[in-house]
């Protein structure tokens, strides 16, 4: 169960290979990769900068991962989240889960990204033609996280 917060890019193939290496109990791997888009709410975005709260970010991500592990029988789990300046098409976040069967892997992966979006202390500021614009939190993200309420 690994959590990394870093400025550098990541290699999805290498990360998955590392997470699954030598573990014959894994029957399914699920992943989510978040990318920077070039448009948000109808406005062109030339770049974005992600700020975070060092210390609390890692702590919150570890708590979310522990909750996923409590709910599903996972073999492995990896969360990598980048910060700093990123341009469209760049990778922002990677969530990978592994389990004996697909359902646990797929569900826990969706849970992790939904909870991460509403709990991990990251903030995005976008560069647009009208200047810098802080991204506002979305009700749809809160709704997505809420559907995973205690079970």
């Amino acid at each position: 169960m690994t959590v990394r917060v870093q400025r550098e890019d990541f290699d999805v193939g290498a990360e998955i290979a590392e997470l699954t290496r030598g573990n014959p109990r894994i029957g399914g791997v699920a992943s989510f990769i978040g990318l920077v888009r070039d448009i948000a709410d109808g406005t062109g975005v030339s770049a974005m900068t992600l700020e975070h709260y060092p210390g609390m970010t890692e702590k919150q991500l570890a708590t979310i991962v522990a909750e996923a592990k409590r709910r599903w029988p996972l073999e492995g789990c990896l969360v990598i989240h980048r910060y700093g300046r990123l341009e469209p098409t760049e990778q922002i976040v990677l969530v990978v889960t592994t389990s004996s069967h697909r359902q646990a892997a797929l569900e826990s992966c969706a849970f992790l990204i939904d909870w991460l979006k509403t709990r991990a202390p990251f903030w995005k500021v976008e560069d647009t033609a009208d200047g810098a614009r802080w991204v506002a939190a979305r009700q749809s993200d809160d709704d997505a996280a809420a559907k995973w309420a205690k079970k």
Binding site: G34, H52, H81, V93, K117, P121, V135, A136, A137, D141
Partner: peptide, 10 residues
């Protein structure tokens, strides 16, 4: 003690 807007990561 930290103060910040609603988070927007992911």
């Amino acid at each position: 003690i930290a103060f910040f807007p609603p988070v927007t990561g992911g």
